[in-house]
Structure formats: structure tokens, C-alpha cells
Amino acid sequence: MPALGVLALVVGYPVLYTAYLSTQRMNLLDTDPSRYIGTRNYVRLFGDPVFWSSLENTAIYTFGSVIVAALFGLSLALLTENLLGWRFRSIRALLLVPWAVPFVVVAFLFRFMFLQDGGVINAVLLRLGAISSPVLWLNDANLALPSTMLTNIWTMTPFFFLLLSAALSSIPIEVIESARIDRAPTWSMVFHIKLPFLRNELLISGLLMVISNVNDFAKIWAMTEGGPGYATTTLVVYVYRLAFGDFNFGYASAIGVVWLVLLLVFASLYLRAIRTA
């Protein structure tokens, strides 16, 4: 019980404070104190195109990278499933390497690799003849978001791989054997026998990764600062700019509150879906 009390304080205080700020006109640069403006911040939010595009970018970035990374992780797990002993252990260790690279390093490393001139990705593609002139990975309105997502997928794939290969190995051997006797083809075995066993692992690990991605600031900020234009501006980036570029804490808090509500709805729907499974 005391532990719950600490928890309530640590969790509750910032949330309540944010909710309070969202009803204020509060700019840190103003010399006069903040004042109550009711729902004005919320009204403004609904007419703010950058808010809506940030919401969209957040959804694409989060779900897009989680889904692709889960598929990659699943493929890797299936690909290495029949390996045993030191071979499996060393390959698993090598495939896990990206997870151990800190986010800030990932961000700068990929920004460096994505450079238009001097970036290794363009250099390799040019040499292979896959492209004829350097591509502006992070500075093209259409490519910037996919490029940041690719970076994110790289860091996240090992997590799914680790979890799913553990889950694959825990499928009862009898299930696999009986399917083999029935001469089920490989694909059908994967889809009808193995995937159902992995379903829960996929859903839970997916949720864990959605949680850590929805808040991903370091990678996007270090790579694009939300640009070009607003192409990679997610909600975190937008809130950061509002709060610490413009010092407009009132409006930034209002976005925080709307965000909280949206997430509550999402989480309860998702958890319900898992439970009924």
C-alpha cells in the first residue's frame, strides 16, 4: 500500500499539473502570471493543421514501424528456427546487436549514413547502380518519414526476434510432429500451426513497443528535427517545439491531455481485444 502511495504521487502529480496548465494561458516568457482561459487552448487545437498532421505522423511512425519490425522479427525467428547449438547462439547474438545500440547513437549514426553526399547508403546504391543521383533520404518530404521509420525498425527488430524465437521453441513438439505426419506444407504449417501459438506474444510485445515508440523523441529530433516542413513532426516533437521553443506551456499541455485521452481509449480497446482472445 505505501508503494501504491508513492506511485500515485509520482504518476499523479505531473498528470494533474498538466491538466491544470492546459486551462491556462501560460507562456514562460510572459512577465504577468498565467491566467485561466477555460477551453480556449482546446478550441485552438481543433483548428490547428499541424496538430492533426502530427497526430497522423505519430500513428504512421508508431504503428508502421512496430508492424514492420514485428514481421521482420517473425521472419528472422522462423528463418533461424531449425538451427541448433553454437550456430544458433552466435547468430542470435549477432542479430541482437542493434538493440544494444543507444537511441542517440542510432539517430546520429543513421543521419550520418543517410547524408546526401558522403552518406554510405547513397554511396553503396550509386556504386551498385541502383540510383543514378544521390537521394535526399531525410530531406525529401516523401522520404523523410519512411527513412526515420526504417531507422526505428532497425533498432526494434531484435526485440521481436528474441521474443518470437523463444516462443517458437516453446511450441509443444507433439503439435509440430503431428502436422509433419499430416504432410502439411511449410507455409500452411507456419500459418495454421505456429502463428496461432505466437499470437499472444505478438500482441503483447507489439503493445510494449507501441508504448515505447509513441514517445520516441531522440531519434526523430536528432535526425530531422521534425522536418522537412512538418513531414516528420510527431506529437512529441510538436509539443517539444511548443513548450521549449515557444515556451507556450498552456497549449503544449492541452495537447498532452488530448493525447492522454486518446491513448487511454486505445489501450483499453487493445487490452480488451487481447483478453477476449
Binding site: L7, V11, P14, V15, T18, I211, V214, N215, F217, L235, V236, V239, Y240, A243, F244, A252, S253, G256, W259, L260, L263, L264, A267
Partner: peptide
């Protein structure tokens, strides 16, 4: 508690 974890750090 879980949702709180999804709040933006900057807030």
C-alpha cells in the same frame, strides 16, 4: 499507469 508511460516526456 500504462498510459501514463505513453505521455510525452517533455510534458
Amino acid at each position: 499507469i500504462l498510459v501514463f508511460r505513453m505521455l510525452p516526456l517533455v510534458v
